[in-house]
Design a protein around this nucleic acid. Sequence first.
DNA 1: CTTGACCTTCCGGTGACGGGAAGCCCCATA
DNA 2: TATGGGGCTTCCCGTCACCGGAAGGTCAAG
Lengths: 131, 131
Amino acid sequence: MNIKEVAQRSGLPAKTIRYYEEIGLIRPLRQANGYRAFRDSDLHKLAFLGRARSLGFSIEDCRVLLQLYEDKSRASADVKRIAEDHLTQIAVKLAELLAMQRTLSDLVASCAGDGRPDCPILQGIAPKACG
Amino acid sequence: MNIKEVAQRSGLPAKTIRYYEEIGLIRPLRQANGYRAFRDSDLHKLAFLGRARSLGFSIEDCRVLLQLYEDKSRASADVKRIAEDHLTQIAVKLAELLAMQRTLSDLVASCAGDGRPDCPILQGIAPKACG
DNA sequence: CTTGACCTTCCGGTGACGGGAAGCCCCATA
DNA sequence: TATGGGGCTTCCCGTCACCGGAAGGTCAAG
């Protein structure tokens, strides 16, 4: 398989596939003309990587997950720990975004949004004159 | 005021303050020795920027918000539009994170997390053998 | 033989800074 | 007066996960 077919089948852009090779996540063979020659196993790994990335795992997490995936004697506890850590990160980000959303939607709701200069949003962002 | 005091009072790292000057968000004066000389108005702007950033506005959004903040004849509608767009972006990110959280927490819940190799998390990430 | 779609590598840019080096400046103390 | 230590400056590279584009080789079709 050439890179375009693998891109279509894996759903990853060709640029991303080349990048994943560059950082050692996959090691496709090479044809005599220098073109990459992807095996089914490469495609399989790329699809795995695409799904792991879509779940928000970092590249380094993906590297480890892929190793564990290849290692048929891994302990599921190792995988679970990575996933739980990632869930914690997700929860932190969610909390941050929810806090932003709450504050900002309150500000937006209180702003007339007309031609007048009076703007509660800017007032809400501005530092309070203290003391 | 020197940079360290401004950093403490604004809550922003000195590095960030220098960066904000570099990209033209603030324009502090200079002392004879080359040190930055921050006025109250600079501190005020930095505090504004810090709060806008903590609400997740991009630097370019912050640049516009700061201009609108300075422009006492702005229309509140201009501010509201930026804030609403940002709220939309926040909602998109929240939806993505919630989807990740749902999928991943289901997978984690179904994984024994012991010494055995059987792992529903990896199975869930792996591409389905189709056809 | 040319055209056009592939493929390759390489270089630079993204956003919003952080780390750290090299080198002034200033003040206090011995 | 020397010295030590902190603070300030600029400059350059690194982050993360790629994307865009240029320059050039390859291949199949007409």
